[in-house]
Design a protein around this nucleic acid. Sequence first.
DNA 1: ATTCTTCCAGTCCCTGCTGA
DNA 2: TCAGCAGGGACTGGAAGAAT
Length: 422
Amino acid sequence: MMDVLSRLALEWIPISLTRDGRVVADVFKHSLSAMDGLPPYSQARIIELISNRLLKARPRPCLWVSVDAPGSWYFNEMQRFVKPRIPTVILPEREAPKDVWDFSPHGYPSLAENVENPRMELPFTVTNFGYKPNLIRVLRILARLKAAHRPEIASLTGLSQSQVRNLLQQLQAKGLIERRQIGKYEGWAIRTRGLSLAHRSWNIPKGVHFTKYRGEFRYAGERHRRVSRLWRAWLGTAYPSIEIWESWTEVPLQYGIPDALAWGSHRGKEILFWLEVDSGHSSRKTMEANYKRRLQLAYAHASRWGIPIVFCIMGPLWIVEHFRWCIPGMSPQVAIIGHDWRDSGNLPEYEFGKWREKFSMSRFNEPTRSHRKLPFDPNQYPPKPKKVAKIKPPKPKSVKPKFSTGSENVDRGYRRRSEGEE
DNA sequence: ATTCTTCCAGTCCCTGCTGA
DNA sequence: TCAGCAGGGACTGGAAGAAT
């Protein structure tokens, strides 16, 4: 019935199966981009929500999902995640299905007079809604985070802080986001209006429940969450030659949920950067068990998609030092690195099939190291002549979060049963 | 000597401003 | 429009000083 369809934002592109056009496949097209700010998992959930709606609205609907993504990883993950409920085909942008057999499970033909032209909402594209692309980008990122500080948003969008500041103010002026106290400092939170625009921008059907698929998955302490959210910016500073396409926090993969995952390319080769942040609250034994399992998951993922993975552990020094005992053999496709989570913007060089760590003492060896991109960092060292006498590695004790009590719950942890893994 | 207070450098967020 | 810098406010931890 029309009613259901009017709450969807899809294109209707029936395929003629006979010359006279009287027999057609009732095809609906849903377009998405890997740069929409959602990981493959969430996009797959949207596809299921759309499928459920279509099933109610039409007798023999087919769904054509058009994915705009560089490389192959995102596309592959999408295909794996989608459990089709109606005949579905997922294709790269610019490819189109030709008949019912292109769908899986295959579709069935309909008589043209039985499938009338549906009235649906206009699929969202940035241009046809008159927003600036970056404005929507910031809004989408914030929709996942719910509440965040500017540096975190800047990191995840890949934009500069100046830009993000400007965009945040514009979003605030439109009433889509608002200032909110996050722990110690004021930050930004998305408002209901902003959330509905973000949902609209992902072409999520009206009236469905998307919250549990949208956000970060687990509850994390302040510092933990912060390091995860800054992962993209951190990588960009540490490895300037890498191109990062997207980064998400708390993203469900086939198995396991990295604290942060950055996806991009290095010298033309697609690559993943998998981050685990450990604040060191579990025993060494638990830690070993956890990381042996997580590394196995990373190895499996790398070999399944033939994509190299850089696996990074960040935490207090003792965690990083202990971590080498948690490595269950190596995979030639995976490089493992560890680093002090306070030493922002630095990482050891990675090498596939090897474990590498680098501690903050590196500041002795290379005084002329590349300047940082993060605006608040440059002031960190320079004018400090008097302390030269007693340079000692920072005391490993001051490791607890400095920015907040961590008592307010900005986001909830949504546990999933199927992706089980903590 | 021990505990309490005060002070200051350091940290991290923000805004305002300048110049390209 | 945006990169980058200066500076303010809120807070912390440690050091120095004061009180017990």
